[in-house]
Design a protein around this nucleic acid. Structure first.
Length: 570
RNA sequence: CGGGGCGUGGCGCAGUUUGGUAGCGUGUCUGAAUGGGGUUCAGAAGGUCGCAGGUUCAAAUCCUGUCGCCCCGACCA
């Protein structure tokens, strides 16, 4: 491709509203252009990256028995009503009516459609298991898109769905998908962490996310360096430390104006961890007292999952009043009206400071099982850095991550609600057991850039680079132009695709654009080198260039490419 | 949806407080010189100042409304 003809231009400066490096560089180098909030076009260079990523994904999905299909973008609402998500999902599901007034949706994912396919096609255990996947555009009307390609509304996703006769078969297959995901990310040059994750709106029995660990990430991860434990904070477990509070009789003490944990603890000469923190949350419109040791925070996602509701929120002060509660002095001690749920951290404590359910007073010496109780003891604490790992006791760390892909054991959620059955070898009707597996391609591309750039531009790993070679002709002398054109032809004839900077521009402009666009190998043709019958070859990732004889050029490039590709081989 | 901010040639910005009919850098086009890290000189094109009302002799500037975009939060397969 001649750069003079390439449909894209580079920008010297990034638009002011692009914050992430990947966003800035992909805009500046002419890979993507924004059409609307969270909606992007891919220019030729960007699309070549996407096609490379697609091909890697296809190879890895095919390698684990995947069969590529393509499902519609537009779905009739009835399918989503059958699964229940028509009612469960809010405005991020784009809905519209067709010309005859029929409700339709834009597919944000394809469980319904693929389950519908499966129930029509599958009758017998002999057809199981199988996995189908597609690479296709999705639309989710996110409340807030951000970060360039990291969080968008319209996006290309690889979504795969596996169907199994039973849970054991899904459990057997699931690790091969995870391995394929590691392979995909490694071949794209992205180092990912597989973390246990929340099952979210998909429902199901287990899930993992594949995360690029980066400060630009939106999710909080809990990691143990010692044993490799890794989980999204929304499901992460941790040890809370031994109970310390001494046993004491329950006694009411005056704590005027002391409402929050820190104030109360200080007033009574105690530590925050000697206080029983009681949050009143609203779940399905009803109040629940969530009790946790004072030094810990509640993770609302974990709490909501334990309560079996979509989400919880803190109650407003007016709501508390309506329920006869006193803000700052709420407590499970001596009250019988409100559902109480307790974190594991409070069970062993012998004498905690707790609210007295009246203005200006707390109890000391409150003990679980004696002064208050609930059958609902759960893990709702947010893991903290430095907490002990539940697996090995090592010290946990917190990190941020970008979710590139996810894997879910869906189980029976859709086959039940949509009636997808098969007959087993005994002739008994059984529901299909499903897994589903997603990867965001644009997000993966952005993560490659986040992982591979310097202050001058992108540094593409060879397998995803739009072109392996960036050929630069310096000056407009006839000999240089002729030599460069010859090399261009030679590379093309050898199947090495190449971007050829044939513009009448100065060396600085060409080098800067080459660095910005980030092709792995740069070949420079100039009068200076031509005198030695040589060209200059420089890997984008290297500091300096090598002089290579003209007649050795092709072999050098081919060897370099082969050597690089070997690093990324599955 | 809550909080904050921004809309002025392709991109980055000034001008808005104190109304007087739009400017700088970069990019683009033409010509010339230059030719190893965004080179130089000369000339040129390109803007209903997001949109709609209103105030005024006069609005980028003041008022009202509206749309779009960004950041933080809520939300998120």
């Amino acid at each position: 491709m001649r750069l003079s003809q390439l449909f894209a231009r580079t920008w010297r400066e990034a638009p002011a509203d692009a914050e992430l490096v990947s966003h800035q560089l992909m805009l500046r180098a002419g890979y993507i252009r924004r059409l609307a909030a969270g909606i992007y076009s891919y220019l030729p260079l960007g699309w070549r990256v996407m096609r490379n990523i697609q091909e890697i994904i296809r190879q890895e999905m095919d390698a684990i028995g995947g069969q590529e299909i393509n499902m519609p973008v537009v779905h009739p609402a009835e399918l989503w009503q059958e699964s229940g998500r028509w009612y469960d999902i809010g405005p991020e599901l784009a809905r519209f009516k067709d010309r005859v007034g029929r409700d339709m949706v834009l597919g944000m994912t394809h469980e319904e459609v693929v389950t519908d396919l499966a129930r029509r096609e599958v009758d017998s255990y002999r057809q199981l298991p199988f996995m189908v996947y597609q690479i296709q555009t999705k639309f989710r009307d996110e409340p807030r898109s951000r970060g360039g390609l990291i969080r968008v509304r319209e996006f290309m996703m690889k979504d795969g769905y596996s169907f199994h006769p039973d849970q054991e078969d899904l459990d057997r297959y699931y690790p091969s998908v995870c391995q394929a995901y590691f392979n995909i990310c490694r071949r794209c040059g992205v180092d990912v962490a597989m973390v246990a994750s929340d099952v979210g709106m998909m429902g199901g029995t287990g899930a993992h996310e594949f995360m690029l660990v980066t400060a630009a990430g939106e999710d909080t991860l809990v990691l143990c360096r010692r044993c490799g434990y890794a989980a999204n904070q929304d499901v992460a477990q941790s040890q809370r430390g031994d109970a310390l509070s001494p046993s004491a009789p329950l006694r009411e003490v005056a704590t005027p104006e002391k409402k929050d944990v820190v104030e109360v603890a200080r007033f009574l000469a105690a530590e925050p961890r000697g206080v029983l923190k009681t949050l009143v949350v609203v779940a399905d419109g009803k109040p629940v007292m969530a009790c946790i040791r004072g030094d810990l925070e509640v993770n609302e996602r974990k709490l909501a999952n334990c309560l079996g509701v979509g989400d919880v929120r803190l109650a407003h002060d007016e709501e508390l009043v309506g329920w006869g509660m006193v803000a700052g002095y709420v407590s499970p001690v001596g009250q019988a009206h409100c559902r109480v749920i307790a974190d594991l951290s409070v069970v062993e404590e012998q004498g905690l400071i707790a609210g007295a359910n009246r203005e200006g007073y707390h109890y000391t010496g409150a003990r679980f099982g004696r002064d208050f109780s609930t059958p609902e003891v759960i893990d709702m604490a947010a893991a903290r850095p430095g907490d002990a790992c539940v697996e090995c006791g090592g010290s946990l760390e917190l990190a941020r991550g970008v979710e590139i892909g996810n894997t879910f054991k869906l189980g029976l959620k859709y086959s039940r609600s949509m009636g997808a059955h098969y007959l087993d070898s005994e002739g008994a009707e059984k529901p299909l057991v499903m897994g589903c597996y997603g990867i965001g391609l644009g997000r993966l591309a952005a993560c490659v850039v986040e992982s591979h750039h310097d202050d001058k531009g992108i540094i593409w790993p060879l397998p995803v680079a739009p072109y392996p070679v960036h050929l630069v002709a310096l000056g407009t002398g006839e000999d240089v132009v002729a030599a460069a054109a010859g090399i261009y032809e030679q590379l093309n004839a050898s199947g090495i695709s190449c971007i050829y900077d044939d513009r009448n521009a100065s060396a600085g402009v060409k080098f800067n654009d080459a660095d910005l666009m980030g092709m792995p190998l740069r070949i420079t043709v100039s009068k200076r080198n031509l005198k030695e019958s040589a060209v200059e070859i420089k890997p984008r990732s290297a500091e300096s260039a090598s002089s290579v004889a003209l007649d050795a050029m092709l072999g050098y490039v081919q060897d370099w490419i082969d050597h690089q590709m070997a690093r990324y081989k599955p």
